[in-house]
């Protein structure tokens, strides 16, 4: 891709255009329906302490969920690699986890776990689990037959092959799965917070819901922007990890 001046300026121009349209539209509607960019900025500024605190707690829940999803996703991948039988028996249910609507489970989780972060952590874990499991499942099998033969020839057993060959070989797949999973984990955490957070401590899910109910639409918008920024930052961290860990060796040449 050409990284010309135009290539850099065009997204900025598009942003300016969208902002302009938004502003124009907001003049026609009451702030409760559509606050202007300035009103959103003001809501963000005045509520910054609370928004930042909420972002921090939502980030913690997302990260916690991601960690659990990572342990179970990677663990599941290793288990499936070890036993085709287990894979045949359990994979359909792993798919089920993916298809059950998370919004429907969340209230049940409140019944079980009560109000607080555990609900958001769990919903984040549930939505982030499947992409990581899939990535692990594919990645752990991505090694070539010759690589396996090589390790076998030098007496490497199953675990040694896992540690020396399959786990490092699956890293590009895992990080790519993680890229999908981080965005989902933020969404999952916010959904969990919709029902499982009572505002102590504040969370983004709680702020979105509470501010929209009390007609503070500017705050709702601000919370949405903070949530987006959180997801983008998490995504950026994974990209950074990919650039540092994978890009030097991962390519067509092998």
């Amino acid at each position: 891709m050409k990284t010309s001046a135009a290539g850099r300026l065009l997204p900025l121009a598009a942003a300016a255009l969208i902002l302009g349209l938004w502003w124009a539209l907001s003049l026609r509607y009451p702030p409760v329906l559509l606050p202007s960019p300035a009103e959103v900025a003001q809501a963000a500024w005045t509520g910054r302490d609370r928004l930042l605190e909420a972002t921090w707690h939502t980030a913690l829940s997302s990260a916690g969920g991601l960690l659990i999803a990572g342990v179970f996703g990677l663990g599941g991948g290793v288990l499936f690699l070890r036993s085709r039988w287990l894979e045949a028996a359990l994979y359909p249910y792993a798919l089920l986890v993916q298809t059950v609507p998370i919004v429907a489970i969340a209230p049940l989780l409140v019944v079980w776990l009560g109000y607080g972060a555990p609900v958001a952590v769990t919903t984040a874990a549930i939505v982030a689990f499947f992409p990581i499991l899939t990535a692990a499942n594919v990645g752990l099998r991505s090694v070539s037959e010759e690589q396996v033969e090589l390790l076998t020839l030098y007496g490497a057993g199953w675990w040694q092959q896992l540690i020396k060959l399959r786990l490092p070989g699956s890293l590009p797949y895992l990080l790519s799965g993680l890229r999908t999973a981080v965005g989902l984990s933020v969404i999952g955490a916010i959904i969990g917070e919709f029902v499982g957070s009572n505002g102590v401590p504040p969370t983004l899910g709680y702020l979105v819901l509470q501010s929209s109910r009390s007609a503070q639409t500017g705050t709702t918008f601000a919370a949405i922007f903070f949530a987006t920024a959180l997801a983008l930052a998490a995504f950026g961290l994974v990209r950074l990890a990919e650039a540092r860990l994978i890009d030097p060796w991962h390519g067509d040449s092998q």
Binding site: S144, Q147, A156, Q160, K164, L171, W249
Partner: peptide
């Protein structure tokens, strides 16, 4: 094919049989 492990340096690849 050379069948080198792409995440290992040349020296680390050569060391692999000794490690195993």
């Amino acid at each position: 094919r050379p069948t080198l492990l792409p995440w290992r340096t040349v020296a680390a690849n050569v060391r692999l049989p000794l490690e195993l």
